[in-house]
Amino acid sequence: MARMISIGRVSSRLGGVALLALLGSATVFFVMRAGSGDPAIAVLGEQATPEAIAAFHRKWMLDDPLVLQFWRWLSSAVMGDFGLSMTVAGGTPIMKLIASRLPNTLFIGLYAVLIAVVVSLIAGTLSALRHGKFTDTAATSLAVLGISMPDFWLSYVLVYTLALGLGIFPSYGFTPPAESIAGALYSGFLPALAIAAPMAAAFTRILRTALLETLYRDHVRVARSLGYRDAFVFVHFVLRNALIPYVTVIGLQVRYLLGGTVVVERIFGIPGVGALMVDGAFGRDYPLVQACALTFLLSVLLVNFAVDLVCAALNPRSA
């Protein structure tokens, strides 16, 4: 399968990722600087003396030409140095903050994708095979409900029923995967489920539609008439074709999924990049918000790159 993905395609896609990352950094940087408010006042307070503000500007070199500031910021960012946070613990390196929190965010994100994929594969297949029957109606109605349930609202429903009501899961707090994988799987289940539910709904719908479109195609009928078993025909001739739009949609949903971590991390007290970004937003910590936004951007770009490769592997025509 790997043979089908040409090196040229991979490198041109990687070039696109790098270009978008560069464009994104520039946009984030300049939009941030063009926005309202002086970080000095945000950090030092409205009553800060002009001398203190001037000293703050000198310290963070805010009076240099913007292009120079951008160049300095970009060249150190490429080396993995995002500078110091203006608010958190009086100047912790931002890279250290992000490095300690990114695994938690990625863990929750991946966990949510996993739940959504498992649920949607089952629900989507069942409702396509039992098209028009009760199972189908139930699965489709549940999917519409799932889409109408924003993650932060679902979080509270889950906390109220499964955590406070039945006491099966903790309602707050998170064991990082670095400490204990089992603990992270357990404590991360509710937040991951809250993010996964709308995804699962979207995935189920796309899989159902894609399966229904392929189930009655000629090549499937031919395969069946040749006497192959139903299960074999389904896996090799139907599912494989239907997986292409399915995987594409998973890639498209990644940005909603990572966006969802922001609120859910706050609700469940998960120390992730999203919660860090919200803290930075409240403290007007410009370099921190900037670095978090870029981290999210890079995550999405890399996931989409991977999804593209998977799609190419699934579909020999597009290679």
Partner: peptide, 8 residues
């Protein structure tokens, strides 16, 4: 399109 919309 590449920014998580809520992050944006």
């Amino acid at each position: 399109f590449s920014f998580p919309s809520f992050v944006l």
